[in-house]
Structures are given as C-alpha cells and as structure tokens.
C-alpha cells in the first residue's frame, strides 16, 4: 500500500476522495436533490450518480419500505450519522488539512525531490566531471607514475648495474687478492717448507754448534759472574782503598816529623777507632827508638782524630788499624 502510495500518491488520494464523495452522496443526496446546490462543482460525480441512480432507485424503493420502518431508527441513526458525519467532516477537514499539509509537504517533498533531483543531476554532473577529472588525473598520475617508475627503474637498474659492476670489480679484486694471497701463502708455505727443510738440515749442524755456543756462553757467564764478583769486591776494596787513602792523607798532613832525628827510623802503631773514626787508643807496637819520632807519629794520629772511616759495615775493617810510619826520605 505504502509502496503504491509512494509510487502514485496522487492516484491514491483521488481514489480515497472519490469513495468518500460517493458515500456522502448516497445519504445526503436525497435531501439535497431539490436543491442541486453544487451540480457544477461535481460534474463527474453527477455522471457517476446517474449511472448508479437506477440501482439506487430500486434500492431506494426497497429501502423506502425498510426505511419507513426504520425511519425513527434511521432518524436516530441519521443523527448519529450526522454527528458522525460532522465528526467525519471534522475529521475530513482535519484530513484535508492533513492532506493539504501533506500536499504541501508533498509539494515540499516534490520540490525537495526536484531539488534533490537537480542536485543529483548536478551531483551526477559534478561527479561525472569529477570522475572525468579524476580519470584524467589518474591517467596523468598513472602516466607520471609510469614515467617515474620507469625512471626509478632505470635508475635502480643503473645503480644496480653500477653496484653490480662494483661488486664484480670488488669480487674480482678480492678474488685477485685472494689469489695473490693464496699465491703468497703458497709461496710462503713453500718458503717455509724450504726453510724448514733447510732448518732441519741446518739444525743438525746447528745443534752441534748451539751446544758448543751454549757451553761457551755458560763459560762466559761463569767468567762474567766471576768478574762481577770481583768487581763487587773491587768496589768494596775501592771504597776501602779510598778510606785508607783518606786516612793516610789526613795523618800525613798532621805529621810534623822532626827532621833532627836520624834517617831510616820507622815506627808502628796500633790504633783503635770507634764508628765515626774517633781515636780511642794509640799504642806504639814498635818504637823507632827515638822518643821524638814516636811522639811525632802519635801526635799525628791524635791531630788527625777523627779519622775518615766508612759508615756501616765497612767500618769494621777500620776498627783496628796498624799504622806503619816509614818516612820515604
């Protein structure tokens, strides 16, 4: 129904209105027959009434009998109907209003539809243009893409080729290098092999030689050790000698020898020292026979006190000293 209405709203509305008019005329028309009030307004309806009038006349006659019986009832029913009509009228007005509203609504809708249609067309046109544009753009894009792709491809290919060439070159170089290295290695190996062979050959002789050298080295080391030991003892002796020399110097510098005594005199002293060189005692172990000479040497030692002596362990050699005074002239 709706779809029908939707599809032919005007036809539906016309049909409804027609039905309603028929019903109304059926009841009211009798009353209203003396007074053709509105022949003009419903030409179609009058015509239709004419077609149906025979039926209705028959009917009316038959009904006239029923109707007479029923007149009071009918009256009442008529009133009801009147009421109902009234009500229907109202309803109809309402309906009319509604219809009108509906109509305006429909009109608006129609307008809207037209507009929509127009819009649709426009839209369609726009869309078509758009589509066209889009297509063109797409086409263009596609062309560009193709072009780009081609360029990229070309470039890629070039890079690749380059890369490939480089890789190839590198590979070749590496290969060459590898080859050279391998050659080198091989040669080294060969050399090593030869060397080893030579070594082996030599080793036999060298071993002999080495043993001799080792023996020599051992001997040399022994000699060196001995030399070292000697040097050390010499160093000690040197230190000792230095102090001996210093003592000798100091005593000689303090020895005022009386030239008056006979030549060829000599004298021996035993001197005891404390660390630091302090003279603790001076003893004449062999007199010169001349008191003056003996005294001069004793005095020389006392005047030279303290004597220069080494510090620490080196002192021990100097704790007890024999001093021989033998004038050289």
């Amino acid at each position: 129904m709706r779809d029908i209405f939707k599809r032919n709203p005007l036809a539906v509305v016309l049909a409804v209105v027609m039905h309603a008019a028929i019903i109304a005329f059926m009841f009211i028309g009798v009353d209203w027959l003396e007074k053709p009030v509105q022949p003009k307004s419903n030409v179609d309806i009058v015509q239709a009434k004419v077609v149906d009038q025979s039926k209705v006349d028959a009917e009316v006659a038959r009904l006239k009998k029923a109707e007479d019986a029923k007149k009071a009832k009918e009256q009442k029913r008529l009133a009801d109907i009147q009421r109902k009509l009234e009500k229907e009228k109202k309803k109809l007005a309402e309906l009319e209003r509604k219809r009108k509203a509906k109509e305006s609504e429909a009109k608006a809708a129609e307008k809207k539809r037209a507009e929509a249609k127009k819009r649709a067309a426009k839209e369609k046109k726009r869309k078509a243009a758009e589509t066209k544009k889009k297509a063109a753009a797409e086409k263009k894009r596609k062309a560009a893409a193709v072009k780009k792709k081609a360029a990229a491809e070309k470039e890629r290919k070039a890079v690749e080729a380059k890369k490939k060439a480089a890789a190839e070159k590198e590979r070749k170089a590496a290969e060459a290098k590898k080859r050279v290295e391998a050659e080198k290695k091989r040669k080294a190996a060969e050399a090593e092999r030869q060397r080893k062979a030579a070594e082996a050959k030599r080793r036999a002789g060298a071993e002999k030689k080495r043993r001799a050298a080792e023996a020599l080295a051992a001997e040399q080391k022994a000699l060196e050790d001995a030399l070292q030991a000697e040097l050390e003892s010499e160093r000690m002796a040197t230190e000792r000698d230095q102090f001996i020399f210093a003592i000798k110097q100091k005593i000689q510098n303090n020895w005022l020898r009386p030239t008056t005594v006979a030549d060829g005199l000599s004298c021996k002293l035993r001197v005891r020292l404390i660390p630091g060189g302090g003279v603790v005692s001076v003893t004449i172990t062999r007199s010169s026979g001349s008191g003056a000479f003996d005294r001069s040497v004793e005095t020389a030692v006392y005047k030279a006190d303290p004597l220069p002596v080494p510090k620490g362990a080196g002192f021990e050699a100097f704790r007890d000293l024999n001093l021989d005074f033998i004038p050289s002239k």
């Binding site: 020895w255 021990e316 005074f325």
Partner: peptide
C-alpha cells in the same frame, strides 16, 4: 774484607788493616 762485611757485627778479626804513612810535613 768481604767476610768481615758479611759478618756485620764481628769486632775482632785476625789481620787488622795496615796503613803505611810515608810522607810528613
């Protein structure tokens, strides 16, 4: 002398050092 140096605290030993004094003022 070395022996003497090694035996740090040895006080007396057989042959005391002998120093010859030959020059005089």
């Amino acid at each position: 002398l070395i022996l003497v140096l090694l035996l740090l605290c040895q006080v007396a030993h057989g042959a005391p050092l002998t120093i010859e004094i030959t020059e005089s003022e």
